[in-house]
Computed example of a mutant assay.
Amino acid sequence: MMENFNFSSLMEGKNYSLPEQIANYILTKIFIGELSQGERLIESEIAKELNVSNIPVREAFYVLQNTGIIERLPRKGVRVKSITEQEMNDYTDALIELFRLGVDYSTTKWDDEKRNHLEQCLIEANEKLLEKNILEYVVKVHRLCGYIFEVAENKAFIKFYSDITFITNAYSQMMWGDVEKTKERYMYLEALVDAIVHSNFKKAKEAFEILTRQSLSLKML
């Protein structure tokens, strides 16, 4: 069920099933901070809020539970999963190491068409940043970085990237109100793309690490 559901699903223009739409709705509220870590999710209340039955809400819960975003606790019900600073650091380290592997596997597979696509992803991300639409900007960045794994043609890397970024993106707080700092971080995304276009893969890895460590921070509640 929902094999292709990932963080980028938030903005994709596909016809999603009702459970997928509800999962996206909940994930978005977590991402923008309307739902906090440890906050209880009541099936009937969400169903009433969205004017749907409890069944698709329950199915959406299972999807988000499988991605590590929410958890079901005995006698406490379903809650937004809490994540410690150490756990977030571990996920960040894993994401950086995974990206390095993805780059290594992709080095011989870049051609003009793929490079042009990567540059187009950067243009689309920049457009959202200029609009100050941080949610869509982060989704565009997610797709851009994920494209490296598509070029690498390694299905395991693509799955691991999806699994890790569910956590890191959902719980990161990127100083939403400070667009200038987000723009400063954007320069590393530009550097990443430029490095790959010019086959400087070592520089691409370095740019990704700086971008990731500066962008991902856990807001302790």
Rank of each mutant, 00 (worst) to 15 (best):
E190D: 09
D111R: 09
D194H: 08
V78I: 14
F208D: 03
N54I: 11
K29V: 05
V197Y: 07
A47F: 05
A191C: 03
V179C: 01
I148T: 15
W110H: 05
S44Q: 04
C145G: 03
K181I: 10
V179N: 12
E12V: 10
D111S: 08
T92D: 00
E119C: 07
L35M: 11
Y186K: 12
A156N: 07
E49N: 12
L144Q: 13
G13F: 06
D178H: 12
L18C: 04
I26S: 04
I134H: 10
K128N: 11
N4A: 05
M2Y: 10
I196D: 09
I32S: 10
H198A: 12
S162K: 13
F5A: 13
L192D: 02
S36P: 00
A170V: 09
L122W: 10
N89T: 03
L144V: 12
D90K: 14
L64E: 04
I30R: 08
G102K: 01
L18F: 03
V52E: 09
S106F: 01
M220G: 04
R40W: 01
E180M: 05
I22Y: 09
L211D: 05
N154P: 05
L10N: 08
L64T: 07
H117D: 07
N169M: 06
E59Q: 14
A47Y: 10
L41P: 03
L10A: 06
S44T: 14
I167V: 15
C121Y: 14
I210A: 02
E124Q: 12
F7N: 06
Y137T: 13
L27P: 06
D178C: 07
N89Y: 06
E12M: 11
V139E: 05
L35E: 02
M187H: 07
L192V: 03
E190N: 14
L189W: 02
N169Y: 07
D93M: 09
I210Q: 07
I26R: 06
D112T: 14
R115C: 11
K48Q: 07
T165R: 11
I158S: 13
E153A: 15
I158G: 01
K128C: 07
N116F: 09
C121F: 14
I96W: 00
L18A: 05
F201S: 07
E87A: 09
K203H: 01
L192S: 04
A170R: 03
K128R: 15
E127Y: 09
I46D: 03
N6C: 10
H117C: 03
V63N: 02
L192R: 02
A191R: 15
I196H: 07
S9M: 04
D104S: 14
D104I: 03
I22P: 08
V78R: 04
I69G: 06
P74H: 06
C145E: 12
E124C: 06
K132Q: 14
M187T: 14
E136Q: 10
F157Y: 12
L10D: 04
R75L: 12
M175W: 04
G77M: 07
K76E: 14
F61Y: 14
Y91C: 02
I22L: 11
I46N: 05
I69Y: 02
I42Q: 11
K155Y: 04
